[in-house]
């Protein structure tokens, strides 16, 4: 009797609680912002900048299980940022983010900035502040060599396209190929493993990330060119103009000194 009654109560109370929580949540959300201190000064006080990067994206941010180091284009850019802001490229600490976890981690204060193949989009601008574009990517398709899929037009009914949860490409592909079935995964590791296991016919995301997969497994290739523009930006918590300025300044100097091209050529083969 006790158990059954309390279980019934559980349901009712749960509903009530969820509404209450959601209600105060909404109130609080509206009142945040503006209270944060100058993030740039905080970073300088700490003497290090904590940057969220991918650990599963070859060429951009990949944790190498052999060396234990994270490496890639985003990593080198981050090091240059640390050098420009703190005077030492070693004064950077990396934390792993995924497409899903990066915005929560930034807002939690886990990380100071996101340098993680992140497309600047209007939706995201509501949640974070972006630097200038530091890399121009475009969405494309990855298929096994010899696949009948040659481009977007071949994504017909029944074609399984794999994407990553929380990425812009997962949203875009539904518009570009409304007939196809889209399956979404937690991260690129799982998505690419699923493609290799034959769980899908194509994998879609930014060409730059796909090149990394080809680099890892040459049995796969990009097809159909790019069908979107994905300008990558460095994201910081909303309302940190000083930090955005410092990052933009550093990016500009990197480009002027030729350091940017050096890093880009090191990781990204011109196509």
């Amino acid at each position: 009797m006790f158990k059954s009654k309390s279980s019934k109560l559980a349901l009712i109370l749960f509903l009530a609680m969820s509404m209450l929580l959601a209600a105060c949540g909404k109130g609080e959300k509206a009142s945040t912002g503006g209270s944060s201190k100058n993030a740039l000064e905080q970073i300088k006080d700490k003497g290090k900048i904590v940057i969220g990067v991918k650990y599963d994206t070859r060429l951009f941010g990949l944790k190498n299980p052999t060396s234990g180091e994270v490496e890639g284009f985003d990593i080198d850019i981050s090091k240059e940022l640390a050098k420009a802001i703190l005077g030492d490229e070693k004064k950077v600490e990396f934390k792993e983010v995924t497409s899903k976890t990066r915005i929560p981690m930034l807002n939690n204060g886990d990380i100071d900035a996101i340098v993680a193949t992140m497309t600047i989009s209007e939706e995201r601008k509501k949640e974070v502040d972006f630097s200038d574009v530091y890399f121009m990517a475009g969405q494309s398709l990855l298929v096994k060599k010899g696949s009948p899929i040659k481009g977007l037009k071949d994504l017909k009914k029944g074609t399984k396209v794999l994407a990553v949860k929380g990425s812009t490409s997962a949203i875009n592909i539904r518009e570009k190929a409304p007939e196809a079935t889209v399956l979404e995964y937690e991260n690129y590791t799982e998505a690419f493993t699923a493609l290799k296991s034959g769980q899908g016919d194509a994998l879609t995301t930014d060409d730059a990330i796909l090149y990394g997969m080809v680099d890892q497994d040459p049995k796969y290739q990009l097809v159909g060119g790019t069908f979107t523009e994905e300008p990558y930006g460095i994201a910081v918590k909303k309302g940190n103009k000083e930090l955005v300025d410092a990052i933009n300044d550093a990016l500009k100097k990197m480009k002027e000194s030729g350091k940017y091209d050096e890093i880009k050529n090191k990781w990204i083969k011109t196509n």
Binding site: E28, K29, P104, G109
Partner: peptide
């Protein structure tokens, strides 16, 4: 009676919306 997977999701992705921000 709630899946643990959902509780983990909730703790990390939903709590920030009500102002509770936790590291991984």
């Amino acid at each position: 009676n709630t899946p643990l997977l959902l509780i983990i999701f909730f703790t990390f992705f939903a709590l920030p919306e009500v102002g509770i921000k936790l590291s991984v």
